[in-house]
């Protein structure tokens, strides 16, 4: 007798397939490769800092981490667009949601699988370079960099990366579920990234807060790494997680309506 596959197996299977399909596109492969260029630049900055210190005898104090945290969101954003926007719209336009329904896949598992296909690459493309730079910084600067400081930076980077990857998954997979055309999903997704903060700005409501996933992630970098205001950081993280939850719920709702004969 066959056992019902675990939720993890089903979610992982859907995510794996989605990622394999996406990797066939040159655009996405390029973005993923380019995503590793900023940390290389950051490592070069650290090496120059070390050389200057050795030659001139004083530390210029250049820290490429804050720059990298903001800059790395761009390849993550592009990768998320490439991965997430066709994910559900393709299945809807090909009319294959019923194929999932006749297998041990319910709408929640389906939505979670599609979200994971965006979340995991986005998370790794963001966190891995940051972890590399923190490690290189610690290694190059040696005793000048406090290990605890590096660990704290890594913890903060983990929180930022988690929130950003969840938001990117929600803000790209959700629009994909709303339409049968990948291009419309792409436009919707871009609108989600830009329109909310534009509207806030038009009404003069911008300031310490933002709504759009990308701008919220920049605000989170500020509050986590610069001003270190924890309550505001939590608020920004909550907004990012809300984008993720909204994308998941929209996908789940849309798919549940179409997973029937």
């Amino acid at each position: 007798m066959s056992a019902v596959p675990s939720a993890g197996h089903v979610i992982g299977t859907i995510a794996q397939r989605e990622f394999r399909i996406a990797l066939r596109r040159r655009f996405l492969r390029t973005i993923l490769i380019l995503g590793f260029l900023p940390p290389i630049g950051a490592a070069v900055v650290l090496i120059i800092r070390l050389l200057l210190k050795q030659m001139q005898g004083h530390d210029v104090g250049w820290d490429p981490l804050p720059f990298l945290l903001n800059f790395q969101a761009i390849p993550v954003f592009l990768a998320a667009l490439g991965l997430g926007t066709p994910a559900v719209s393709r299945d809807r336009s090909e009319d294959v949601l019923y194929l999932y329904a006749v297998r041990p896949v319910n709408p929640s598992l389906y939505a979670a699988g599609k979200m994971l296909a965006v979340f995991l690459p986005a998370f790794l493309v963001m966190l891995f370079p940051i972890a590399m730079v923190i490690t290189i910084r610690q290694g190059i600067l040696g005793s000048d960099a406090a290990p605890l400081h590096s660990l704290a930076d890594f913890g903060r980077a983990f929180v930022l990366t988690f929130g950003l990857a969840v938001a990117m998954a929600g803000a790209t997979v959700g629009p994909s579920a709303a339409t049968k055309r990948g291009r419309w999903a792409l436009l919707l997704s871009l609108a989600i990234m830009t329109l909310p903060d534009t509207i806030l700005r038009v009404f003069g409501l911008d300031g310490d807060w933002a709504i759009g996933p990308l701008n919220v992630s920049h605000k989170l970098v500020e509050t986590l790494f610069e001003s270190k205001v924890w309550m505001e950081s939590l608020g920004h993280l909550a907004i990012l997680l809300t984008w993720g939850a909204a994308g998941f719920l929209l996908t789940r709702w849309r798919v549940a309506r179409e997973m029937i004969p």
């Binding site: 197996h9 397939r17 090909e94 297998r103």
Partner: peptide
């Protein structure tokens, strides 16, 4: 085998069949 639904899109025939098998555990 559903009449109204097609084949899992985005790959070859063997990919689609493998995916169907993996979804079933």
């Amino acid at each position: 085998m559903a009449e109204q639904a097609g084949i899992f899109p985005g790959g070859s025939g063997v990919d689609a069949v493998v995916f169907a098998g993996m979804l079933s555990g």
